[in-house]
Every structure is written in structure tokens, then in C-alpha cells.
Computed example of a mutant assay.
Amino acid sequence: MDDGGGTAAADELVRASRAGDEAAVSRLLSRGVPVDARDAEGCTGMYLAVHEGRDGVVRVLLAAGADPEQITGLYAEDLPLIQAASEGHTAIVRQLLAAGARPDRPNRLGATPLGRAAFRGHTDIARVLLEHGADPQLRWRNRTPLQWAEHRGSTETAEFLRTWAAGRGGPAATA
């Protein structure tokens, strides 16, 4: 029915994913539209569902076998986990990690999920990523996540990362 190269069915799946229409996404998948099909612009349903914060659609796509580490973005530069971390979608971050997304995998530009969460001041997401083994010392553009939080003026996130590093709530506290 669809080779993933931008047919009408793929376009419809991507539109439904962006709109958050779980029923339409399920219906299209049951008709044989590939779960990671790309529309005419090269976008997948996962890319737009994550971007729009459609956690129900993300759940449907992952249950249907969507790759939680598929290359996304208009320029094939991003990953769903980095996108969700950057946009502040905690529920989606949890879903992607549960589906096997690696918490430290960088995108094509070298950003990591934790680096982007710190950059945007998303403390809850930083906590989730660290609880799933993200390395707080990985650098993106020569800065650690803590340095990004400080640079961007994200005081709450910076304080959380300092506390985590000191072992209060982090791995040293449970050792």
C-alpha cells in the first residue's frame, strides 16, 4: 500500500499523528500504512506527534512498532527523545525510554537529551533522564548539561543538576 516515500496514505498518517487523532492513526496502521512512513516532506508521524506533544499517538505508534530512535526532523538532524526533552514532553520522554530509546544518544548536531533538557530548563525531564542512566558529564558544544542550565539562567535545573552530582537524590544517595 505504501513504500514510506510520501504517498497519500503516509501523508494521511502524518496529518492524523500531528492532529492527535489516535483513532485515525490506528485505522491507518491497521490498513497497512507503515508505522514509520514519511510524508511528502519527509516527516514521520512520530516526528510530528512528539513535536505536538501527542502522547496518546506516540503510545499508538510505539505499540505498532515505531522505531523510538528513528532519525527525525526536516533536515534529518534529530531524534524523538531529544525532541521530546527539548519540548518539555515528560510523558513522551518516559514512553520513548521504555520503548528502548537510549538516554545518551546524540543527534546529528551532537546534542544529547539531557543537554537539551538542561538548555531549555526542563528539570523534571532531566530527572527522568538521569534516573534512566543519562551521563551528566556528556558535553554538547563544549558544555555539560549543568553548564547549559547555568548559561541559560535555568536556576532550578542547575540546582537540581548540582544536587544530583553531589549525590543528594542521585546515584550516590542510593549506593
Rank of each mutant, 00 (worst) to 15 (best):
G115E: 05
L79R: 01
A40F: 10
A99G: 04
R162M: 11
I125G: 09
Q70H: 06
A117C: 09
D21F: 04
G6H: 01
I82Y: 00
V50C: 12
H132N: 00
G110E: 04
A85W: 09
R116S: 11
N142W: 10
A99M: 05
A84F: 07
P136G: 04
D36E: 08
E22I: 00
T157K: 07
D78E: 15
T155C: 05
A111M: 09
C43T: 07
A91Q: 14
T123G: 02
A85R: 00
H51S: 12
Q95R: 00
C43M: 04
D2M: 12
G73K: 04
A84P: 14
R116L: 15
R139F: 03
V14Q: 08
G110L: 01
G169C: 10
G32W: 06
N142Q: 12
L146I: 00
G170P: 01
R105E: 15
G53N: 02
A8W: 05
P80C: 01
A24C: 04
T157V: 11
D11W: 00
A117P: 06
G32L: 08
P103I: 06
H89C: 04
E156V: 13
R108W: 13
Y75K: 05
P80F: 03
L13H: 10
R162Y: 06
T155A: 15
V33I: 13
L62E: 08
R168Q: 13
V14F: 00
P103Y: 05
G170Q: 10
E87P: 03
G6L: 08
A111N: 04
I71P: 02
G32T: 12
L13Y: 12
V25M: 06
L28D: 03
A99C: 10
A49M: 06
L62F: 02
L81Y: 09
G4A: 06
G5Y: 13
G167R: 08
E87H: 03
A64E: 12
V60D: 03
V33W: 07
G20E: 08
A126V: 14
G65D: 11
E12M: 01
D3V: 11
A111P: 13
T7L: 13
T174V: 15
R120C: 08
Q95T: 09
A111Q: 07
A134S: 05
E22A: 10
G32A: 06
H51N: 08
D55K: 15
R120S: 01
P113Q: 05
R31M: 14
V58H: 07
D55F: 08
D78G: 03
P103Q: 00
A166E: 14
Y47S: 11
G5V: 12
E150M: 14
